[in-house]
Amino acid sequence: MSKLGNKESDCEDSFSFRSREMKFAIADGVSASIFSDVWARAITESTVTGKYNFFEKPDNFLNDLIVRARQKWYRKIDWGKLPWYLKNKSVSGSYTTLVGLQFHKERDGFGYSSFAVGDSILIHWEGGNDYDSYPLTSPEQFDNTPKLVWSGKGHPMPLEFKVTAPEASTFSGTLTGNSTIFLATDAVGKWLLEYGRYEEAKRLMNSSFEMTELFTKEINSKRMRNDDLTLVSIFLE
């Protein structure tokens, strides 16, 4: 959902998945830069559609992933028609966080591997207070300076502009029958870690109306930061 007071189309978060490859990606476009919504979308799509194996080190594929995403981002923007204020700001490029997640079938269930840049998080919840989260493990670790994935400069710099991939952290695990994996952008991720309302979040996943109502209440009571919010839950049935 979008930041309260904004239109739904203003949301700069993105989520993509490919069920056949069991790949998922979540990204939080940085609102201080522009076309971050386009960049977040390009990066999540490239993450799940590229032939990358997340069980390998991210260094092996992150550069290629960014090149592909940059192509999508660069071609989506009609540089020649931008008014001066969009033109001048878009030169600086766009920024986003990213979490990529891939499952694979193991003999007794499913294993997963994930990589992340920034403060969008993965929480592996086993019920009650039993959880692991990464790359951030506590609400105090959220600050205003997360690592980010940069699109590289916009026009007049060429499409071929080379971008250095940021360092990504990795995390892996095994799903049990009780496991739920949450992917969350920063504000909702921080709220989950702080208040532990996993059960409720999972229960409301099928009701976007009730979920929106809950998040609105939490924002208005200042327990959750007013921000674009994306929460994904993945579990075995």
């Binding site: 203003d10 522009i34 971050s36 919504d37 204020y85 969009l86 700001k89």
Partner: peptide
């Protein structure tokens, strides 16, 4: 100020 208020959809 305009730069800071500029988003993808305009100012």
């Amino acid at each position: 100020l305009i730069y800071r208020c500029t988003k993808s959809d305009g100012v």
